[in-house]
Design a protein around this nucleic acid. Structure first.
Lengths: 181, 181
DNA sequence: GTCAATTGTGTTATACCATAACAAAACTAA
DNA sequence: TTAGTTTTGTTATGGTATAACACAATTGAC
C-alpha cells in the first residue's frame, strides 16, 4: 500500500533534517490503488460501490487536498451527469460509512482515507499553505487521548484530530521565496 | 480558577474507579469567574470588551454545552437587542481572537475557554449524550502530536482535538436506566 | 468640548454547507 | 415478470457564515 506516499509524507529516513527536494509520488497509481482497495473492500462486505459512488471517490482522490461537497458536485456535472446536492451527500455518506473517506471538520471538506483496509483512529496534518492533508495513524497519540479519557471517566467512541501548520514542502518553497527576495 | 470544575471533570482523586454521585459545580460562580477573567485580560491588552461582546460571552458561558451562532443570536434578540448574523459572528470572532472562546468544529458551535489566561493547546472531550464539552490542556497529547509533526517535517501552528464519547455522568445515568429496565 | 480618525454595530443581501421528503429508476431475488 | 429493495433524481428548505455598505460610538489630538 503506497497510500502514505503523499506529497509531504513521502518516506523520510532522516527526521529532524531538512526535507529533501520536492519528491512527488505517482498519483495515478495512488488513485488506482485506492479505487482497487475500495472495490475489493466493498465486494467483500456486499456493499455496492455503484458507478456514481465510484466516480465520487475518484473525484475525492483527485488530490490530497480535501474537497468540498459542492466542488464534487460541479465535477460530477462536468462529467455530464445531472446531480443535485443530495446526490453528492448520499455518495459521501456511503463512502464515509465504508471508511473510504474522511471528513475534514476544519475545512468542511472530504478526503480519501489512506487506511481504509484496517480499523484505525487517524489524525490529519493539514498544510495551511498548499491545503494538503496528510493522514497518519499514530497509535501513540491515540493512546495519550485514551489515557486522558480514562482519567476523566470518559468512554471514547471516536476522535477528530486535525493539526494545522506548514508542511515540509511548503517550508522549502518559502525558503526559496525568501532567498530570492 | 475553578474553570475545570465542570459537569464531568470535577476533581476526581480516584481515576479508574466509578465516578461519584452527580456533583454539580457552582455555575453562577463559574460564569462570574470567566467574565472577570475576560474583563481583566481585555483591559490588560487594550482590547475592548464592549457590552455586546460581554453579553455574547455570557450567553456562551450559559452552559458547558457548545452553542451555535444562531442560538446565540436568538438569545441576543431575547435580550431585546436588534441583531443579525454579522453581529454575532463579529462578536464571536473577537472573543475567539482574544482566546476567550473556542469553536467546536464537530458541532459548528462555540464554548467558553477554560484556560483563557494562559497560552495552551486544548483538547475537548465531548459527550454525545448530554452534549457537554470538557476542555483539557493535556501537554502529553500535545507533545505526541508535536513529535509526530516533527517526523513529518511539519511546523505546527495549532491543532484541533475533539474526542467523542460518553461522559462519566451519562454513564451513571445509563446504568440507572438499565437497572430500572 | 470639537473635530477627525478609528473602531464597533446595524442592515441587507447573499454564498456556502447540508438534509427532508417524495418520485422515478435500477437492481435483486424469487 | 413481478414484487421488494436499494439507489438516484428532483424540489424545496434549513443551517452556517460572510461581503458590502451605512450609521453610531469611541478615542485621541487639539
Amino acid at each position: 500500500m503506497n497510500a502514505v506516499l503523499k506529497d509531504f509524507s513521502v518516506a523520510r529516513p532522516k527526521p529532524r533534517t531538512a526535507p529533501r527536494a520536492n519528491q512527488r509520488h505517482d498519483h495515478v497509481h495512488c488513485i488506482a490503488a485506492a479505487l482497487a482497495t475500495a472495490s475489493s473492500l466493498c465486494a467483500a462486505r456486499g456493499a455496492r460501490l455503484t458507478k456514481l459512488r465510484r466516480r465520487v471517490l475518484e473525484h475525492v482522490w483527485n488530490s490530497h487536498v480535501p474537497v468540498g461537497a459542492y466542488e464534487l458536485l460541479n465535477r460530477l456535472r462536468a462529467d455530464g451527469r445531472r446531480a443535485a446536492p443530495p446526490t453528492i451527500y448520499r455518495a459521501l455518506a456511503f463512502l464515509a460509512d465504508e471508511g473510504l473517506i474522511h471528513r475534514i471538520e476544519t475545512r468542511n471538506a472530504y478526503i480519501g482515507c489512506d487506511f481504509a483496509d484496517r480499523p484505525h483512529q487517524a489524525q490529519y496534518f493539514i498544510c495551511e499553505q498548499c491545503g494538503v492533508a496528510a493522514e497518519v495513524d499514530a497509535s501513540d497519540i491515540h493512546r495519550r487521548i485514551a489515557a486522558r479519557a480514562d482519567e476523566l471517566g470518559f468512554v471514547v467512541s471516536g476522535h477528530n484530530v486535525e493539526v494545522l501548520g506548514i508542511c515540509c514542502l511548503c517550508q522549502q518553497r518559502r525558503v526559496h521565496v525568501g532567498s530570492r527576495a
